[in-house]
């Protein structure tokens, strides 16, 4: 043990310098040369300031598309899922209440048209996306609140549907923030 201790201490110092120090610095420098500059993907606002494209936001107003339920209210100071199990009675009551609320705000929508992602909390609590179906089912409400034709809003949803990577990987999805920004930009 004793004859091993001094080399172990010295090697620990050396490896700290290499793997924690130099490695991090080189990556940071490399990040400056990449398009995001290591600051994440941003959406610049015309009135100044910016949003994070990948961090979802809370939308409660009728004139916006709504995001998924979140266990942390989309405050990215932290992150978290509900961690509710599939048979938990309290959880099932919560989902039932979300369905009822949704139906109350969307007259004419059938239960079978509500996709699960709209009434379940995401893993991160910051999910920036909803499924295309989850957007289309809200289109009539949004159009009504803005005095637009439903078909125009539905067309906007389709325009903002991001395809799968190479047509197969991941999911078709909609960035709720981008969609709502596109709505605000509509004349």
């Amino acid at each position: 043990m004793k004859q091993n201790l001094v080399p172990a201490l010295r090697l620990t110092l050396v490896t700290l310098v290499i793997f924690s120090g130099l490695y991090t610095l080189v990556l940071w420098a490399a990040a400056q040369a990449l398009p995001t500059h290591g600051l994440g993907e941003r959406i610049e606002r015309s009135e100044g300031g910016y949003f994070y494209a990948n961090i979802g936001q809370v939308f409660t107003e009728e004139r916006y598309f709504w995001s998924r339920p979140s266990a942390v209210d989309y405050n990215a100071a932290g992150s978290g899922g509900s961690n509710k199990g599939p048979t938990n009675p309290d959880y099932l009551a919560t989902v039932q209440a979300r369905i009822d609320t949704f139906l109350a705000h969307h007259p004419g929508v059938r239960r079978a048209d509500i996709p699960a992602d709209l009434v379940t909390a995401s893993g991160s609590g910051l999910d920036p996306n909803i499924s295309p179906q989850a957007a289309l089912v809200q289109a009539a409400r949004v159009a009504g609140a803005r005095g637009l034709e439903v078909s125009r809003v539905e067309a906007l949803v389709r325009q903002n549907t991001e395809p799968r990577l190479f047509g197969i990987f991941g999911k078709e999805k909609i960035n709720v923030l981008r969609l709502n920004l596109a709505l605000d930009a509509m004349k």
């Binding site: 998924r68 899922g81 509900s82 992602d117 499924s131």
Partner: peptide, 15 residues
């Protein structure tokens, strides 16, 4: 009575 065609989504991310 809701649509779960994409599977169980509680705790999962849409992307």
């Amino acid at each position: 009575g809701i649509s779960q065609t994409e599977g169980s989504m509680e705790g999962k991310e849409v992307r």
